Simulated scan of single mutants.
Amino acid sequence: MNNARGYLAEYLVGTALGIQELQRIEWDSYDLLLGEITIEVKSSAYLQLWDQKELRTLNFTGLQGIRSNPRAPDGGRDALGRRLNAMLYVFCVQTATSHDVYDQLNVAQWDFYVVSRSDLASTNQNSLGIARVKSLSGGATAWDDLKAAVTAAAVGQERDDDADWWGA
């Protein structure tokens, strides 16, 4: 299903990074944690589950999010509002252009683009098309090379205050 693609992308990236305990926490401020590196995973694909007249335009939305926590006052929303909540963003594209060859579990059919928080912040955008993602990342990273690319891109990246922002 199209709505499950994001979950699969998180699993593929987490597996490539060697994260042993992959846990999905809905509405968390980032998707994956590799040591101290916070990672947001975004996904897109040319194909939808249904028949199409033309391939889908690749676009990544919701780059800036609002942190939330059910233990926080006032409905659990961070007063700082929308912002980039991860040190790195991995943009994942399922590249199949025909339903006949589509295999969502074949990592060779995925392109992965690693973009640092600071590079993404420089755009001041909440959504990006694939051309901008390619430009910011310097090109696709193979699934086997994701851990090295993520580790390298994390150097010098900082997060906003990750303390208990809702109070002690």
Rank of each mutant, 00 (worst) to 15 (best):
residue 14 G to S: 06
residue 112 F to S: 12
residue 56 R to K: 13
residue 150 V to P: 09
residue 81 G to A: 03
residue 105 L to Y: 15
residue 58 L to P: 04
residue 96 A to N: 11
residue 151 T to E: 14
residue 41 V to I: 11
residue 5 R to C: 03
residue 35 G to P: 04
residue 101 V to Q: 13
residue 132 R to K: 15
residue 9 A to H: 03
residue 101 V to C: 11
residue 100 D to Q: 14
residue 47 L to M: 08
residue 43 S to R: 01
residue 92 C to G: 07
residue 77 R to V: 09
residue 14 G to L: 04
residue 162 D to P: 04
residue 94 Q to E: 15
residue 119 D to A: 14
residue 42 K to D: 04
residue 58 L to V: 06
residue 166 W to C: 01
residue 81 G to Q: 01
residue 91 F to N: 08
residue 43 S to E: 03
residue 121 A to G: 03
residue 157 Q to V: 01
residue 151 T to R: 12
residue 164 D to E: 13
residue 18 G to M: 01
residue 120 L to W: 02
residue 134 K to T: 07
residue 14 G to Y: 02
residue 66 I to N: 03
residue 124 N to H: 11
residue 4 A to L: 08
residue 161 D to Q: 03
residue 24 R to N: 03
residue 69 N to Q: 09
residue 89 Y to W: 07
residue 16 A to N: 00
residue 41 V to F: 07
residue 61 T to L: 02
residue 91 F to V: 09
residue 159 R to K: 09
residue 112 F to D: 11
residue 73 P to R: 10
residue 24 R to H: 02
residue 15 T to V: 10
residue 144 D to K: 13
residue 93 V to H: 07
residue 132 R to G: 04
residue 115 V to P: 06
residue 99 H to T: 11
residue 2 N to G: 14
residue 84 L to T: 05
residue 167 G to Y: 03
residue 64 Q to T: 00
residue 64 Q to W: 00
residue 20 Q to A: 15
residue 20 Q to S: 15
residue 1 M to F: 12
residue 123 T to F: 00
residue 85 N to G: 14
residue 142 A to E: 14
residue 80 L to H: 07
residue 109 Q to N: 13
residue 63 L to V: 07
residue 70 P to G: 06
residue 95 T to C: 11
residue 12 L to G: 02
residue 161 D to R: 01
residue 20 Q to D: 15
residue 75 G to L: 00
residue 150 V to G: 09
residue 54 E to A: 13
residue 118 S to K: 12
residue 23 Q to Y: 04
residue 128 L to Q: 00
residue 70 P to Y: 08
residue 150 V to K: 10
residue 120 L to I: 02
residue 106 N to F: 11
residue 127 S to G: 09
residue 133 V to Y: 04
residue 94 Q to N: 05
residue 40 E to K: 05
residue 137 S to V: 02
residue 14 G to A: 01
residue 76 G to R: 05
residue 166 W to H: 10
residue 3 N to I: 01
residue 73 P to N: 07
residue 92 C to F: 06
residue 35 G to Y: 01
residue 97 T to K: 15
residue 128 L to F: 01
residue 3 N to Y: 07
residue 168 A to S: 13
residue 9 A to F: 06
residue 48 Q to F: 13
residue 126 N to S: 00
residue 129 G to L: 03
residue 114 V to G: 08
residue 20 Q to R: 15
residue 110 W to K: 03
residue 155 V to F: 07
residue 12 L to Q: 09
residue 150 V to S: 09
residue 101 V to P: 08
residue 70 P to R: 15
residue 109 Q to T: 13
residue 76 G to A: 02
residue 124 N to S: 11
residue 50 W to F: 10
residue 150 V to W: 09
residue 149 A to M: 05
residue 31 D to M: 02
residue 61 T to P: 04
residue 106 N to K: 14
residue 73 P to H: 10
residue 30 Y to E: 02
residue 25 I to Q: 03
residue 133 V to H: 07
residue 37 I to D: 03
residue 83 R to Q: 14
residue 26 E to H: 12
residue 52 Q to G: 06
residue 141 T to H: 09
residue 19 I to R: 02
residue 143 W to Q: 05
residue 64 Q to F: 02
residue 79 A to H: 14
residue 6 G to T: 03
residue 24 R to T: 01
residue 98 S to A: 12
residue 44 S to H: 01
residue 147 K to N: 04
residue 164 D to L: 13
residue 153 A to I: 00
residue 94 Q to P: 00
residue 155 V to I: 15
residue 128 L to E: 04
residue 87 M to G: 12
residue 66 I to W: 00
residue 122 S to M: 02
residue 15 T to G: 05
residue 44 S to A: 14
